[in-house]
Design a protein around this nucleic acid. Structure first.
Length: 240
DNA sequence: GCGACAG
DNA sequence: ATCTTGTCGC
């Protein structure tokens, strides 16, 4: 019954590729109903030994205020292999996002969307599993290339890969390195850029929700490290 | 074969 | 991602 087609953790890269191909076929890029987008979530992971610490948060797009936060801690189910990040981080991310208790209108993910060797980066992978719009917002490029955008916040230039536009290098803060945005699922590049700009204030390179998730996952990781005890029964709530 | 390579 | 001090610039 549970062959390679069953959506679980692949045991090798061959199964992982088969799973990516199945999920890739479910990716849909289309205009987002912006009027209905008021809740933005973000997730990011930190690592301690072979454990994954995921932090998720929910923000209001209007006013950029933190509304909720949730976490997840589990053993890493897959090693880090460029191009297969989702098999390592997605499980914990999905649990942390589920802990928010509210369905966001769009989710920001620290990684690529379709700007990926096989068209299914972490953000697209998570988007398909969630059935929600997701935006890939990475700090560096995995594949493809782009020109350097102008120095002002808001300027961008497309990322091309195999002669296809798969994303864009976007300046979120004046005279600061770009972030690499690519649609994950259920939205197009235009809307992905809109979400990233709307969720960033111009004070930092990363959109506020992602910056928060990044800092929070590392903080939690540090506390767990200091705590020193077995991570098996670690009580996350007690460390907040 | 060689180099590149999200987090 | 993680390790790890000081330092340069807005």
């Amino acid at each position: 019954m549970a062959g390679p087609g069953h959506l679980g953790q692949p045991k090798d890269l061959k199964e992982a590729r088969a799973l990516q191909e199945a999920l890739r076929q479910r990716v849909r890029l289309r205009p987002l109903r912006r009027r209905a987008v008021r809740l933005v979530a973000a997730v990011d992971c930190a690592f301690l030994k072979d454990w994954v610490v995921a932090a998720a948060c929910l923000w209001s797009l209007q006013g950029l205020e933190l509304l909720r936060e949730a976490f997840a801690l589990q053993k890493a189910p897959f090693p880090y292999v460029p191009g297969y990040l989702a098999f390592r981080e997605a499980p914990a991310m999905l649990r942390a996002l589920g802990g928010l208790g509210t369905t966001p209108h769009v989710v920001l993910i620290d990684g690529q969307g379709i700007a990926h060797p096989r068209g299914l980066g972490l953000a697209s992978h998570v988007g398909v599993l969630l059935g929600l719009p997701t935006v890939g917002c990475a700090k560096s490029l995995l594949v493809g290339s782009s020109r350097e955008p102008g120095p002002k916040r808001g300027s961008f230039s497309v990322i091309e890969y195999n002669s296809r536009v798969v994303g864009a290098a976007l300046r979120t803060k004046d005279s600061t390195r770009c972030v690499y945005v690519s649609p994950g699922h259920l939205l197009n590049l235009r809307d992905a850029l809109w979400v990233v700009l709307k969720s960033s204030s111009g004070s930092y390179r990363l959109p506020e929700p992602l910056r928060w998730a990044d800092a929070r996952s590392r903080q939690l990781k540090k506390r767990l490290a200091n705590e020193g005890r077995d991570l098996h029964g670690a009580d996350l709530q007690a460390l907040l």
